[in-house]
Amino acid sequence: MTAIVEIRGLRKTYDDGFEALKGIDLSIEQGEILALLGPNGAGKTTLISSICGITVPTGGTVSVGGHDVVRDYRGARAMIGLVPQEITLEPFEKVIRTVRFSRGLFGKAPDEAHVEKVLRTLSLWDKRNARVIELSGGMKRRVLIAKALSHEPRVLFLDEPTAGVDVELRKDMWATVADLKAAGVTIILTTHYIEEAEAIADRIGVINDGQLLLVEEKAALMQRLGRKDLRIELQHPIDAVPEMLSHYGLVLEDGGMALTYTYDTQGERTGITQLLSDLSGAGLVLRDIQTRQSSLEEIFVGLVKEGTA
């Protein structure tokens, strides 16, 4: 694997003195889907803007495909497609014209076949002659994506591509992203929807307060930081957790029919064996046992709390 985007010590202090990026180091592999997660104001958009030329970094370097984004901006930007977070489109222009404009702006010769393909992929072909102002919000977002794809980028930045998009359409977009990945495009997306990162990303980066807390393979991240719940269903209901089991931090649920034990998969010992023998020692009869991996959301909330603590 080779890195297509190399970010080294990237810093950004805005004019008002606010430090939005505090030294980011990140290598993005060719052909991967990287999801950037982080709360509002974490610096996700600032990071993308610094790579794409919207803002000027105050420190550090970024290269895309070996081109420095400041010194060799033509080389770098020619490879990049950007779908911004905000819906920003010329309201009175026809859909197909804005898409053609984007292609021209990036210096690509007109290619109607490609424009048609992009519009069809995004189910916008029927709307090609509609003016932007006549489109629904979800359609506008797809126009933004069409504009970014019009010039055949090798690296695609999607800043919250599915914000305000319904479930159906979100699935469609995920499919589009998967197709792009199959075509070799490297994709960086930011999202607030954890399930989105979980569903489509290869790696996940977590940003908070201008710092990259971690970047890891999705599976590894889930495993490393994953906490698991062990749910123990009982044959007979109990009123309270028996005194001798209190140190396990069990939670009584379902009107006394179930107990939940949370443990760290990473921990040296999970304590499950001991718990099970203590349960029978306490005279409880088990009906069923299930384990459940905690979602990224829970992992994420845990991380951010840790980071700010």
């Binding site: 794409c52 033509r74 911004p84």
Partner: peptide, 17 residues
């Protein structure tokens, strides 16, 4: 106008001087 409605992002991110 592009500055006002935000479409300037595209010009800024394009490989042009």
């Amino acid at each position: 106008f592009p500055k006002f409605i935000g479409t300037i992002y595209e010009v800024l991110s394009a490989p042009i001087s």
